[in-house]
């Protein structure tokens, strides 16, 4: 599997040369996705990780590219992990109870 730290370092060097931050980030994501696709194709042990990274790279590229559409700030708010857990019946108490039983 390509070491993604190398990919990250290469991308950071690339961005260091490039004043256009978006272009640098796009290149980073493209190189990351390419490396992870290779890993997935080779069926290496970390292929599960690779598939998640490919998903994140796609999401990041999509957000940066934007398909020419204006970004609606009202759609950029997020919910906390704790609130999402609570909404499906998982409280902090339940987590802490398990942690204290270790």
């Amino acid at each position: 599997m390509a070491d993604y730290n190398d990919v990250l370092n290469n991308a950071l060097s690339e961005i260091g040369k490039d004043q256009a931050q978006k272009t640098g980030a796009m290149r980073f994501l493209a190189s990351l996705k390419s490396a992870m696709n290779i890993a997935a194709a080779l069926n290496v042990p970390c292929a599960g990780t690779a598939s998640m990274l490919i998903g994140l790279a796609d999401a990041g590229m999509s957000a940066l590219d934007g398909n020419g559409q204006p970004i609606d700030l009202d759609k950029l708010y997020v919910t906390k992990a704790t609130d999402d857990l609570r909404s499906i019946g998982v409280s902090e108490d339940a987590i802490n109870k398990i942690l204290s039983s270790r």
Binding site: L56, L64, G66, V78, A81, L85, I88, V90
Partner: peptide, 24 residues
């Protein structure tokens, strides 16, 4: 700045969803 916020949202949502799923 808006593009950064958009990437932030996408990355956060992906990682947060997986975290919530695994904790649950």
């Amino acid at each position: 700045a808006k593009q950064t916020a958009a990437v932030s949202q996408k990355v956060y949502a992906s990682v947060e969803a997986e975290t919530v799923k695994q904790i649950a």
